[in-house]
């Protein structure tokens, strides 16, 4: 796995939004890479740029007000940021699919779910109406929807949230994409249903070999699903590492804070820490970012250097990076 060529590479991606307060740089030099069959987790607080990264990969950033300024998104070596819109339509749904946070509203209420799944298949594989509907039934069976033959004719409002997310997964995987982007796929669901959806994603990944980018603010979900994790803060990647490493020894102060915030099921929380922990302060306005590290105002280790100049990602160990001056010690590996 370590030696395989990356399937999807994002390099130095910058996205700006024009707002009333000025230009907000919502993504600033985002870099990530995804290998075939791998699951990459993206974590961070609301507004840190997780979803925007996903939309930029799909080139679905609303323009205007958004604008992809710089960087590259390479799928099997092809730079999608320079591809034509027609080429992007081929890629979307066929090579890269996406599922969203809101299963209740992400399906079109006036078309049957069978039609909606079959539509993708017809579009990308030029199958007949009948063949694509058959594929839809098979996909529904694959995501464990009971009575798929009957359900395929039903409409979104006749299904629960968990069912609809299964339908979304079936739709996204109908053309066997090499990358599936799951943007907070379980946030709107009940806890018990969340586990089912994650199990389903894992199972489908084993069957189809698709690589997954899992976006979540839930460290628990990431720990369960992801091989590697990137942590984002205010539009930047602050840390990247294998999941075990990041959970066991988080380097960046923000990552440490995030992990400390995960509630534990303990009989008796230690007295110095209450039942819930938080990172003091709030995410800064993206339109008002200074030159320094964007986490500095909330960081207990921050010094003058942090406030003056933003750190570049430093390599730590063999295969992890973190954007924090603490790891710029001379002679550090």
């Amino acid at each position: 796995m370590q030696t395989a060529a990356p399937l999807l590479e994002v390099e130095g991606l910058e996205v700006e939004f024009r707002t009333r307060q000025g230009i907000a740089r919502v993504l600033d030099g985002v870099t990530l890479s995804l290998k075939p069959g791998q699951t990459l987790g993206i974590v961070g607080e609301s507004g840190c740029g997780k979803s925007m990264t996903a939309l930029s990969i799909m080139r679905l950033v609303p323009t205007p007000p958004g604008r992809i300024g710089a960087g590259a998104v390479r799928l099997k070596g092809e730079n999608l940021l320079q591809a034509s819109e027609a080429r992007m339509r081929e890629v979307r749904g066929k090579d890269i699919s996406m599922i969203f946070q809101e299963p209740m509203t992400s399906l079109n209420p006036v078309y049957s779910i069978g039609d909606q799944i079959a539509e993708t298949v017809r579009l990308h594989e030029r199958l007949s109406r009948r063949a694509s509907l058959e594929r839809a039934v098979n996909m529904l069976k694959a995501v464990h929807i009971p009575a798929a033959e009957r359900r395929v004719r039903e409409f979104p409002h006749q299904m629960s949230g968990g069912m609809r997310q299964r339908v979304m997964i079936a739709m996204a995987l109908a053309c066997r994409p090499s990358v599936l982007i799951a943007d907070e796929p379980t946030t709107a669901l009940d806890v018990t249903v969340q586990a089912q959806v994650f199990d389903l994603l894992k199972e489908m990944q084993e069957k189809t070999g698709t690589a997954i980018i899992l976006i979540s603010h839930d460290m628990g979900a990431i720990a369960e699903m992801a091989d590697r994790v990137i942590v984002m803060y205010a539009g930047r990647v602050v840390e990247e590492a294998a999941t075990d490493e990041i959970l066991e020894s988080p380097k960046h102060p923000y990552t440490r804070g995030l992990i400390a915030c995960v509630p534990h099921m303990e009989e008796q929380p230690p007295p110095e820490r209450g039942a819930l922990t938080e990172i003091p302060g709030v995410v800064p306005s993206l339109a008002a970012l200074g030159a320094g590290c964007s986490f500095a105002p909330r960081c207990s280790h921050a010094d003058d250097l942090c406030r003056r100049q933003a750190p570049q990602p430093f390599t730590v160990g063999t295969d992890r990076r973190t954007a924090c001056w603490l790891y710029d010690e001379p002679g550090a590996p």
Binding site: R89, R92, G93, F100, T105, S106, N108, P109, M168, M171
Partner: peptide, 13 residues
């Protein structure tokens, strides 16, 4: 709305 975003993500024109 969200389902329009879904439709675009499917690759529809």
């Amino acid at each position: 709305s969200d389902y329009i975003r879904t439709a675009r993500a499917k690759g529809l024109g």
